[in-house]
Design a binder for these strands. Structure first.
Lengths: 330, 330
DNA sequence: TCCTGCCATGAAATCGATTTCAGCGCAAGA
DNA sequence: TCTTGCGCTGAAATCGATTTCATGGCAGGA
């Protein structure tokens, strides 16, 4: 391994000078800089970040903790975070929590032990963030607020969008709406359910039929498929379904396909997806979550914190775009 | 920051003993282990990995260098790598190269400077891997072979699968096939083109019409869309299209939709996608790349290397699954 | 020409964990 | 009882870069 001492010897300067050439505070005479760079080049010197970090007690790593990167929502968010991070000289450490508090805890431990510069996390109601908060690690929550702590957050207005999308189903002529949403531990699933209920009450004047509301796991589309099947096999089945995230929408669509009741026969709100939907489909109302924007915003906010910003916790709420192709089969 | 010295003082032992409790080679008396653990717990001690790494000259980080995590193929691969890595005590650093050799180079520099334990990379023809190879960083290539070096690789049999899928188009009754594949710098795109050509020759007895072959970027589905439009606006347009990856397939499908020539009117091979295809579609032949399996295999191979395996470079070729729903519109 | 003061430089301490090496205590064998 | 030897322990060196502190050199002002 080539060290600054080797470079120093070759360049005829002291190790301190070599160190200063690589991002030190103190200036170095141009010709010495030249000499050092030349020597470093010849020897193939790469500064050892571990040594630097040990000394400076900081790293250029951002931990990205999401339930599951293979969910396209988080995929795009992660990609966006990585872009902003790289531009600012940070690397991204990827952590899939699978909504499992234990795994999350383990990762938080690794992250602090790693002296990461900051953490971007999509927490759930069971998240134990005390560990990181106590240690003052800069942190930004995405998609959901932090439980029990005041922490920067970038979220979307789920209630409003869920209500609006549900209204569109009613306007399209559907009358009996089912709702498949996520577990109670995930804040967005409750918000979307709430938005859906509001729209139902607005239109029917009464509370929705409880048998039309199901909760399924967010992370596996087969759960969504099962839930949709269950709804559609009711004695009095819904004629449209609100699917609370992209996975659930994918599962629901598959169930509809299997039962030969594809939209527009049965209406669908695909909240936040389905992923890579290719084109507008009659009877499918899609809301697009601003995944990349959430990522870039969160990364930018985190970097502000890393650079020492001390203000109170901030919450940024981003709007949700919507697509309604109508029910016309053309 | 709590260090082993603090813990040592509190537990009434030496720092060396504390270190040994955390994964040291030498055994420690049980009651001292107890005392150390208790003290560590009370003080909230977390070992500083940077110090450890500086000393041991190794890290528990695997760099995952892919063109673009937001491509579902790499997404699933990355997810699989992360699972295997975590189980073995490694973290994953995410690097999007966008097929850009410069960015790749930058990341290789960061990775060596970071003393990463190993690298998993999807290289292209312009990749400069010398840097890492010289330094002996354990490395495994995925999806593509390393240019100019003998390195472990996990790939799929693109030629065979492309030929087989193309055959299915002919069998379905399509006669004039177009092909949209990726840039020449990406090995898989050439292999798939080759497989396609073989099938065309088998069936027609002649070389394919050159105007039916287009190359587009792999990374943006709009390029695929444009290429498909171009093919379909020929005087003598193809009646089926072979799309060389998931992005191209997505773009092609969108073009077909816009031109109101959705399959089965125009046949389609969607090689390696399209992502999250919801269900079988008449006239669309889909090949499924074993994305997760590539990831787990590569991660396992890399970990073997990290643990000191010295054998010659190995290449694992995985099979490709295929789905042909026929052309029947039922 | 001499003095003041800034600027660049090198020597050495430091970050926190690992590891070598020597020593100590204790058990087993003679 | 004495010796041998094993097993555990602590002191101290070490990893490679950063940074403080003291110093030497040089320019500008008197």
């Amino acid at each position: 391994m080539v060290t600054i001492y080797d470079v120093a010897k070759r360049a005829g300067v002291s190790p301190a000078t070599v160190s200063r050439v690589y991002g030190g505070q103190t200036p170095v005479t141009p010709d010495r800089v030249q000499a050092v760079r030349a020597a470093a080049e010849e020897l193939g010197f790469v500064p050892n970040r571990n040594a630097r970090r040990l000394r400076t007690n900081s790293s250029e790593i951002i931990a990205m903790m999401v339930p599951d990167v293979s969910n396209s929502f988080f995929t795009h968010m992660t990609r966006a975070v990585e872009d902003v991070a790289r531009a600012a000289g940070f690397s991204v450490m990827l952590c899939n929590t699978d909504e499992d508090p234990e795994r999350e805890q383990e990762y938080l431990r690794v992250a602090t032990s790693e002296q990461v510069a900051g953490i971007i996390i999509a927490p759930n109601a069971n998240s134990e963030l005390d560990w990181a908060v106590e240690r003052g690690v800069p942190m930004v929550c995405v998609d959901r607020h932090a439980p029990h702590h005041e922490i920067d957050a970038v979220v979307v207005d789920n209630i409003t969008a869920a209500t609006a999308a549900t209204h569109l189903l009613f306007e399209a002529g559907y009358t009996r709406l089912g709702c498949i949403t996520g577990p109670e531990t995930v804040e967005t699933s409750t918000a979307r359910l709430e938005g859906w209920m509001k729209a139902v009450r607005d239109h029917t004047g009464t509370d929705p039929d409880p048998e039309l509301v199901l909760r399924a796991r967010y992370v596996d589309d087969r759960d969504g498929e099962r839930a949709a099947q269950q709804l559609l096999s009711l004695d009095n089945p819904p004629d449209a379904i609100f699917a609370g995230n992209n996975r659930l929408a994918t599962g629901t669509l598959r169930a509809l396909y299997r039962l030969d009741t594809m939209p527009p026969k049965v209406g669908l709100v695909a909240f936040g997806g389905p992923p890579n939907s290719l084109f507008a489909w009659p009877g499918v109302i899609v809301t697009y979550l601003p995944d990349s924007l959430i990522g870039t915003t969160a990364a930018a906010m985190l970097i502000e914190r890393i650079n020492g910003l001390e203000s109170d916790a901030r919450t940024v709420t981003l709007p949700i775009a919507m697509e309604d192709p109508g029910t016309d089969v053309s």
